[in-house]
Design a protein around this nucleic acid. Structure first.
Length: 424
RNA sequence: GGAAGAAUGGCAGAGUGGUCGAUCGCGGCGGUCUUGAAAACCGUUGACUGUAACAGGUCCGGGGGUUCGAAUCCCUCUUCUUCCGCCA
């Protein structure tokens, strides 16, 4: 959520920044500003009346103590009148506040200056590429054939038990999942991230805090009876850990990492995008989250990008890093780098990580602040997060790129965790 | 799931209808004293909203109600503690 302060002090800058997302925000901003002005006017009037009522109530208290009941009753009559005026203002105020918030919640974050203009994924900018020395085996097949050949994943039984997008991992496939989670967590904690195990269901307030609600309502699994949402990413519970808190400036950056299963309804997906491991309703991911000082958040973002790159290099997977254009960036992000690994057998790039700076967009909703050492006051912190990494597509690329006639070779760094060097 | 009790500022803990945004203490910050530090003493110490800046308004777990006036009374929800039940 953008701050009212930003919008009020520089509406034109907000409008032109949002234009990068191909959004004409002018009507929304203008009606928001009108609402805001009206709200403040009504609020001032209401508060003036409240001040008067407070003053009179104290006067009555004084009169009662002195035993001057008759005079007190006269004053009571006046307060009753004021009270009914307050009532009518208050309901109007409530309405305006609701509308104001509604407007604010529906405005996406302002893209950072460095975000390229563009409409779709095709306009994203490749900022770097990396590849190990390697060659694809002859007669290479896509991962969904490999998982069947080596009995790593049982999609059919997943369909029977839960539905499409809920696979069983079996044997070496299951072991590979567990090894990768452990590998990523170890690498993240070595880089200074504190490991946490979050709840897998969150309340609505948490959904609003990180911006999944109301924007992505309908993409999350919702348990109506208990008003809980299955987490679409560990970002939600982990970032919300610090909701409504003021952390000392000296505690920044707060660096957290968590493994969790992620649940996504993926309504509207179809075709080759959902084949095999490309898109699932439940998948495993290790996430990194940072809470950082506003002046340092972009340096932190670069550090996180370098960290994720290191993981992919250890896994010996060819990847590229994209700077997302305005049209392809998520609702809450100011700047996002996507990591894509090359799936040789599918001949396509697969997104395996998304690393973003949200600036104050989340913390404004979360009321997550730090106490500045300079002025002693609370200020909104910046939040950042990134996948490190999402498993299914990493597994897909890993299986496909390393297939040989003798089986599938496991990268050295990972073999220490799997306990095997080959899948046969 | 049932029963009883509880929820107050960073912590601890008073406050049962009016001068309470809230006593006292600890912690934090500033100062006096000291070569320096400790101790002692003095002062200060929440958030949100609002204003050009003041003023003003709101907040005693959340929501609603009674009252001229609510931390205080009533209803409701949530959470915690203890006991019982169930249970990995």
């Amino acid at each position: 959520m953008l701050t009212l302060h930003t919008i009020r002090t520089n509406p034109e800058a907000v409008i032109s920044a949002l234009a990068k997302r191909n959004i004409n925000a002018r009507p929304a901003i203008e009606s928001l500003l009108a609402l805001n002005e009206q709200r403040r006017r009504i609020q001032t009037e209401t508060e003036t009346l409240q001040a008067e009522a407070n003053r009179l109530a104290k006067e009555i208290g004084g009169l009662m103590r002195d035993g001057r009941a008759e005079e007190a009753n006269a004053v009571k009559a006046r307060t009753t009148e004021i009270k009914s005026q307050i009532q009518s203002f208050a309901s109007e105020l409530e309405l305006l506040e609701g509308q104001e918030r509604e407007h604010l919640l529906r405005l996406p974050n302002m893209p950072h200056d460095s975000v390229p203009a563009g409409k779709s994924a095709e306009d994203n900018v490749v900022v770097s590429e990396w590849s190990p020395e390697w060659a694809l085996a002859e007669n290479a097949v896509p991962h969904w054939e490999l998982t069947e050949r080596y009995k790593l994943i049982d999609f059919e039984r997943g369909v029977k038990v839960s539905g499409a997008g809920f696979p069983f991992y079996t044997g070496q496939g299951a072991r590979l999942q567990r090894a990768m989670i452990q590998f990523f967590l170890d690498r993240n904690t070595a880089a200074g991230y504190l490991e946490v195990q979050p709840p897998h269901f969150v309340n609505a307030a948490s959904g609003y805090g990180t911006g999944q609600l109301p924007d992505k309502d309908g993409q999350m699994y919702h348990v109506g009876e208990d008003q809980l949402y299955a987490i679409p990413t560990a970002e939600v519970p982990v970032t919300n850990m610090l909701r409504d808190e003021i952390v000392p400036e000296a505690d920044l950056p707060v660096k957290l990492t968590a493994y969790s299963p992620c649940f996504r309804r993926e309504a509207g997906s179809y075709g080759k995008d959902v084949r095999g491991l490309n898109r699932l309703h439940q998948f495993d991911k290790v996430e990194i989250v940072c809470v950082e000082h506003p002046e340092k958040s972009y340096d932190r973002l670069e550090e996180m990008v370098a960290h994720v790159a290191g993981l992919l290099q250890d896994l010996e997977l060819p990847y590229r890093v994209l700077r997302l254009c305005g049209g392809d960036m998520g609702f809450t992000s100011a700047l996002t780098y996507d990591f894509e690994v090359w799936s040789a057998a599918q001949e396509r790039w697969l997104e395996v990580s998304s690393v973003s700076n949200f600036e104050t967009f989340q913390t404004n909703r979360l009321m997550l602040r730090y106490r500045s050492e300079a002025d002693g006051k609370p200020h909104l912190a910046h939040t950042l997060n990134g996948s490190s990494l999402a498993l299914p597509r990493v597994v897909a690329a890993l299986l496909e790129n390393n297939q040989t006639a003798e089986g599938i070779r496991i990268p050295k760094a990972l073999a220490a965790y799997t306990g095997f060097e080959w899948i046969r």
